[in-house]
Design a protein around this nucleic acid. Structure first.
Lengths: 113, 113
DNA sequence: TTGACAAGATACCAAAAGGTATCATATATT
DNA sequence: AATATATGATACCTTTTGGTATCTTGTCAA
C-alpha cells in the first residue's frame, strides 16, 4: 500500500472530503448525517469517509447500528510536518533576501561616503 | 476554473510532484534538468510542472530557449492557512482533554481527603 | 418476530489523471 | 545557413477516481 503521507494528501485533494472535515470539526456525525449535507448518495459519502479514514484524518467508531465519524489529528500532523520542510526553506530564502537588501544598503552607504 | 486552494491541494496530491518540489528546494532547474531525475518522459514532467504552476507552487520563468522552474511560496501558504483552522480545532480539543484530566484529578483528591 | 433503518459490499459507468509518442516551434551554436 | 537543443502542443491509451444502483447484513423498536 502507499505510505501515510500519500494517503493523507490524496484524501485532502477532493473538495467534498475537505467539506466533510469542516462539518466534522463542528460535531461528530453518523454517515447518514454527513450525507444529508451533500447532494450525493450515501454510498458515495461513505467512500469519501473511507478515504479520509485511510488518510488518518478521521476516526470511524461503531455504535450500535451507527458509525460515528470524528476528526483525528494524525493525518493533518503528518502533512504539517511535511510542509515544515518547505516553510523552513522559505524562511531561509526570505532571510537571504533580507541579507542581500542589507548588503546593498551598506554598499550604497559606502558610495555616498 | 476551480479555486486556488483546490489547485494547490491537487498539485500536492501526486508523489512525483512533491518530489519535484523537493528537487527545486535545492536549486532552480530547467524542465530538462528536472526530467533527468525521473524515469518518465520530458512531456510527462512538463505536465506535472504545469500543474504545480497552476497550484501556485512554482514559478516558470523564460530564459532564452530554457524555462527556469523555481519554488514559489504562495500555494503552500494557502494550504497552511487552510490547515490552521483544523490545528486550532485540535488545540482546543487538546485543551478540553487537559481540563477534563485536571477535573478528574481534583475529584480524586476530594475522594482521598 | 417482524418491519424499519443504518450501514456494508459490489458491479458498473463516465470522466479525469498520468503517461507515451510524435510533430512543430523557438533559440543556440557552428 | 544549417544543425542541434529545449520546449510547446496534440492525439492517444490505460488506470484511477467519483459517482450511482442494487443487494445484503446488522440492529433497533413495536
Amino acid at each position: 500500500m502507499t505510505d501515510n503521507l500519500q494517503q493523507s494528501f490524496k484524501a485532502l485533494a477532493d473538495p467534498s472530503r475537505r467539506e466533510i472535515l469542516m462539518h466534522l470539526s463542528k460535531q461528530d456525525m453518523t454517515i447518514k448525517e454527513v450525507s444529508e449535507h451533500f447532494d450525493m448518495t450515501r454510498a458515495a459519502v461513505k467512500k469519501h469517509l473511507t478515504i479520509l479514514q485511510q488518510g488518518n484524518l478521521i476516526n470511524i467508531q461503531k455504535n450500535g447500528r451507527e458509525r460515528i465519524n470524528s476528526l483525528k489529528p494524525e493525518g493533518l500532523q503528518t502533512i504539517t510536518e511535511w510542509m515544515d520542510y518547505f516553510n523552513k526553506f522559505w524562511d531561509q530564502k526570505l532571510n537571504n533576501l533580507q541579507t542581500a537588501v542589507a548588503n546593498y544598503t551598506e554598499k550604497d552607504d559606502v558610495k555616498n561616503k
